[in-house]
Structure formats: C-alpha cells, structure tokens
Design a protein around this nucleic acid. Sequence first.
DNA 1: TTGCTCCTCACGTCACGTGAGGTGGC
DNA 2: TTGCTCCTCACGTCACGTGAGGTGGC
Lengths: 194, 194
Amino acid sequence: MSNDKRHLKLLSEEPCSAVDTSEVDDVCETSGAGDAQLTGGYLQVGDLAKLTGKTVRAIHLYESLGLIEPAKRSKGGYRLFSSDTPSRVRWISKLQSLGLSLSEIQGIAERRKAFGSARSASSDLLTIYEAKLREVRERLAEYQSLEQELVASVDFLKACQHVCVGEPHVSGCSQCERRHEESRVPDLVSGAQA
Amino acid sequence: MSNDKRHLKLLSEEPCSAVDTSEVDDVCETSGAGDAQLTGGYLQVGDLAKLTGKTVRAIHLYESLGLIEPAKRSKGGYRLFSSDTPSRVRWISKLQSLGLSLSEIQGIAERRKAFGSARSASSDLLTIYEAKLREVRERLAEYQSLEQELVASVDFLKACQHVCVGEPHVSGCSQCERRHEESRVPDLVSGAQA
DNA sequence: TTGCTCCTCACGTCACGTGAGGTGGC
DNA sequence: TTGCTCCTCACGTCACGTGAGGTGGC
C-alpha cells in the first residue's frame, strides 16, 4: 500500500588506524603530505575524506548545502577543517544510513540553530531517533528474512548441482525444481527463470 | 580504503491478501476494475504493481531493460502479464535489496539464457548468492551497531531532558554533555552540534 | 622541476518520480 | 457519458561520479 522508497546506505566504518602521535584525541593522523601536523592541526579535505570514508566530492556537496564548513582556507584556497568535523561528517553519514535525505538533515541542523532552548533541541532529536529506532528494527527483520532466503537458495542450488547430472538444458529447471521434495522453491531461485 | 558505494533498498513485502477465488495459485486477485478474471487470467500493469509493491513506472523500466515482458497486449495496447510475472518482479526486487544494480541483474538474466546447461546456470547463481550471503551478514552487523547507537542516543537525550531544567541555551549542550557521567557521548548526539 | 593535493565548473549516472496530452473499457 | 486505468514521451530529482583545465606546497 505505502510506497516506501527509502534508501538505506550503510557506513564503511573506517575506524582510526592505531598509530596516533598527536595530542588531539578526536583525530587520527595519517602519515604523508596531508598530515594535519603540517597544516597547523587542521585537516585538508582529503584527510577528512579518509577519516570518514566519504569522497572529496561528497564533502564538497555537504559544504555547499551548509552542513559543514571549513574553519578557514589556506592562502592557496585549500579548505582547512577543524578537528571536530570528522564527527560531524560521521553524524551526517549515520543519518543517511537511517534513511534521511540530505535536505532532511539540513532541516534538523537548521531547527537546531533556531531552537532557543537546549531542552527543545534535544527533544527534536529524541523524537526523530525514537522513530528511526522503530524503523531500523523493521529493516533488521527484513534483512534477516533476506538472509534466510539466501541460505535456503544456496541449499537449493547445491541440491541442483547434485541432481542435474548429464548437463540437461536450462529449460528443464522448472520441471526439475518440482522434484526437490525437501521444500518450496525460494523466490530467489524461481524468479531467475525468464 | 575501499569506497563501497552500495545502496541497499529494502522491500515492502506486501504479501498476498488472503481472499483468493481464482484457480491460479501464484496470483492473488484484487477486487475491482483491474481484476485478472476480467482480463482472461492476465494481470494489468496496475495489478502487477500492487502485487509486488512496485510503481507502474518501475515496471515499465524493467520491461524496457528486457527484465520482464508482457505475455501479450490488449487491442487497446494495455500490457497483459502472465501469472508468473509477480514472482519475477519480486526476484528483481530482492536482488536490488542485495545491492545489485539493474544492469547487473540484466547480466545475470542474459547469462542464464546463454548457458547451455542447467548445471552451469545454477552454479552461476550459487556463486552470486554465496557472496551476497556474506555481504548481507556484514550489513546485518552494521545495522545492529546502528541500532545500539540509536538506543544509546535515545537514553542520552532522555537524560538531557531531565538535566536541562530552566531552558538553557543550545550552545550550552557541549559543556553539559560532559556532565552526563554515565558514558561516552554517541556520535549521533555529538555530531548534531554545528 | 617533479609529484601529489587541491581548486572550480559542469556534464553524466542511476532508478525511478512526475506531469502532459491522449485513449481504452466497462 | 462518467470514471478509472492505461498509453507514450520527456523532463526532473537525488547523491553523488567523473573528467577538464588550472594552481598550491613541500
């Protein structure tokens, strides 16, 4: 009935690599030309990308939408981000994983600015997260049933491999399937026939 | 390191509604103008859409890509689909949920046609499904950690509601958070600050 | 000078969404 | 005739991808 067209993108978590020689505790340094220590503690866009698993293009997009902002620019025009930006980008990423569009995320950010009180700001987030928690649990159930169907399909196809001796033609599959007595043919197998 | 840009769309399962007066066992009839019994057992595009939770536009797209095909057309040009098409569309849908693009699905369908033997056709599917099973299990783990972070964030924000008495300004949140002694501030909460 | 990273356009892509203008079928 | 469903273009959308052509910084 409802046309739920939500996309759910999942994060590649990319945790900080262990070596961390800096005193700033929220930023993992990467060795090389873009090292934050060479840019006075700031992160270049490539560093930010690596730390968050996003592309440079995506980060440019988030900036153009007002979701993040470089602390300043180098004299050559390079964006220099402060050390709390990775956390901000991860926040955007996780909200996307929860099915929010970038314009919905803009809305949340703008409401947060508009709210006078901390109480109403946190209450706004609370409402959203409670709803998303219910949705995520539904998605989890759907994924688990997909997992089960994959398991059933793999089992079924392995049985095919044993039954189909002597290289019969593909067109025979629809008849053959009726002879796997064990159980019903999974959608992932039956749908594969044109 | 790797830029995994997979989208995962989830299905709205839309199981057949119970009432089924037809003899065809794979199709649930919907009452009304589009009733398959009025079109000689065939399904109109709107029926197919309802049965699969897809839009008419999506079904047109799948046809243009050669993934499905109407059994015939009415004299007025209406597409008439046979009763096994819903299963085919659900197959497409589930492969999309597994992160396959429509052109990848085209590839699978074309290879299936090209394969001479049933054995090699099922072995092709088997390879794909085994890989997808591993991916789905990774996604499940990621979703579960998202769920946990949502739970932690909801708890945290509820604590905020109790701590923030007297309508302090939002800007105070970053200081306030340090006083919730219980645990670390979740990304979903800390990232919300600009 | 070399090599890597960055800059700003700006068009391309994927899976549809959304009308526009018209016709079929009971 | 009315109302619902369908038809075929064809442009729009969302979150980027992917060059093009040029410059910064060690």
